[in-house]
Design a protein around this nucleic acid. Structure first.
Lengths: 354, 354
DNA sequence: CTGTTAGCGCTTTCAA
DNA sequence: TTGAAAGCGCTAACAG
């Protein structure tokens, strides 16, 4: 069988329009089905055919049309990630982990960041519907997280909202309560007796849970809580307020590292020594934590790992058709205490013997 | 005209399969063409029709199939972003800026991060081909950047490789040379006379250009260059090496902030005072820079703005069919000197009078 | 092992 | 203003 009709398209590799699977089939003298098979590594194909196809692909610089493929397979091989307005290290680590996992499964990541409020988050979610096989939604706002799962419709969703999940939806979250308890227990173990807490933003789920954890771990003392908003500046203000108390605390647990840093600087400026006069613990273990002087004791969360898990989880959901095993609905990541100078024991040297 | 055949599909909103444009048309008693028109805000449509369609969409929770749309329009409304292994703040700021711009144009962002070498970068690029209308490629490797543009084929590409573009390809880059010159001039202006440079990773374009800038700005002195790799640890090592010199420098320009931080810590440990004995300048203005004691003088780049410009640029290219205006092929972003304590003048107090 | 062919869901002329 | 119908490029079921 000769070439039926060596269409004019042949040889016009440099033409304006992209080659299609049909062009490849024609050039390789095989059917489009065979081309498809080779490209999808399916079944058994003669080595000869395979080579012919690959050569043609090469020559024509053929790139499959993803839309068309998605149309026939009803998959997009894409995962959507919806993020709130995240700061530096957290953001990049998270994406790094997610990207790693996604790539390992041949998936792509489509991200939408900087969503402040619930409305924005939902809008982003809506605009992603249909482009992705599943989504990972990070939202510190209680309401948003659950609404998100609704808006998503049939698209599987994994929540990473930092709170324990009451609705039984698939989610991954940090053990904020446990972390806070660990922080307070560490302070108590190192001899502190009057521990204050600088809490995170009002209405933020993680802030809430950390504050609860703090309060629940106290012994022989009432909670001393100052409002912050996770910013360094708010930590500075809060610390200043604490120094003004008639009975000064001898330790501070800040709901995140940036506020702890702010507090540290405030203490330095006020001539209050850390850790001698007052100990400080943060949360997150951002890079600055180790660089501060005194180096900051904090709770480390493996963010990249969390991102990786999120993706694995989602892919699992998508495969099993969204029917999550209720037992493992909410996966918890435990933070690790990293003890540094800022909580060195008040020691036996008679400091703050209280 | 009555309902021709109220197909069984009607009312089965909760069925397993997603609604198609046909379902909507049927329910709204109009043609699919009209539905399409309403959804794309095109032409003129009777208000009645429009409402009927919107109602149907609502009822059926209809979400257009992106793949199908892409198949007929041959657009994806998606921009690909290929990133090297970026650290914290830079990464998130960049994505923030890009996302903002993309959203403003109704585009989505698909990212692929953590690509160390050229091969990985190209692989990522290849896997994105066909899924995107254009790509933004960040790569510090000279070779990769240009290869990328080739591999991309007809897909428009904007390069952000940190080097001046010799090939006339559309690109956006930081004025690394100018920044380095600014740094050195600032040191000279504040009375330093023996300025050393801790350079960035071998083979990294930005490292190269900053080192050149440094050398070119020196007056009455030969270059003193120590190799680093952009990591804090390498900065520490380099600084230690500098202290071992018989003729110690009285200032150090590090190719990035992390190395400057490492150097600062090394000096502290060695009992060398900054800025009294030695001044330090970094590059990037990462958040830590302002938090160090002494706070680090550095060159600030508006990363988010750079990301935004990249996207705007790409969208422009895609519209005009990739024919870039050669005059504006390479857009330069100038860094801004932020003077802090680490370069406070050696003053008239007789310190390091040389 | 390979080819034929029927859709996948949407946009877009072309007519009416 | 609206509808009918022809693809867009690919996959997968079915025949051979």
């Amino acid at each position: 069988m000769d070439i039926a009709a060596p269409s004019a398209a042949n040889g016009r590799v440099l033409a304006a329009k992209a080659a299609t699977i049909r062009d490849v089939a024609e050039r390789a003298q095989v059917s489009v089905a065979s081309v498809s098979r080779v490209l999808n590594g399916s079944d058994a194909i003669t080595e000869t055919t395979r080579q012919r196809v690959l050569d043609a692909v090469e020559h024509l610089r053929y790139v499959p049309h993803v839309g068309a493929r998605s149309l026939s397979t009803s998959r997009t091989d894409t995962i959507g990630v919806i993020l709130p307005d995240l700061f530096g290290e957290f953001f990049s680590e998270l994406i790094r982990g997610m990207d790693l996992a996604a790539r390992a499964h041949g998936k792509h990541l489509i991200v939408s960041s900087s969503h402040g409020d619930t409305e924005e988050t939902l809008a982003a979610l809506r605009s992603m519907r249909g482009r992705v096989d599943g989504m990972i939604v990070l939202s510190p706002h209680v309401r948003a997280a659950n609404l998100a799962a609704d808006v998503a419709g049939r698209t599987p969703v994994v929540l990473m909202n930092g709170g324990v999940d009451e609705t039984g939806r698939p989610s991954i979250s940090i053990d904020n309560h446990g972390g806070a308890v660990t922080a307070v227990e560490h302070l108590i173990a190192t001899g502190r007796r009057r521990i204050a807490h600088i809490r995170g933003a009002q209405g933020n789920l993680e802030a809430e849970v950390r504050a609860e954890g703090y309060a629940s771990a106290l012994v022989d003392q009432d909670p001393i809580i100052v409002q912050g908003d996770f910013s360094q500046a708010s930590g500075h203000r809060a610390a200043t307020a604490l120094l003004a108390l008639t009975e000064r605390p001898d330790a501070v647990f800040a709901a995140n590292d940036m506020m702890a840093v702010g507090a540290l600087l405030a203490f330095q400026e006020a001539g209050v020594r850390c850790p001698e006069d007052i100990a400080v613990v943060g949360f997150d273990d951002v890079p600055i934590a180790a660089l501060m002087r005194p180096a900051l004791t904090t709770l480390r969360v493996n963010i990249a790992e969390m991102g990786r898990r999120g993706v694995e989880r989602l892919i699992g959901l998508a495969r099993t058709g969204s029917g999550a095993d209720p037992d493992t609905a909410c996966e918890i990541v435990r933070p690790l205490l990293v003890a540094r100078q800022s909580t060195a024991a008040a020691s036996t040297a008679g400091l703050n013997p209280d």
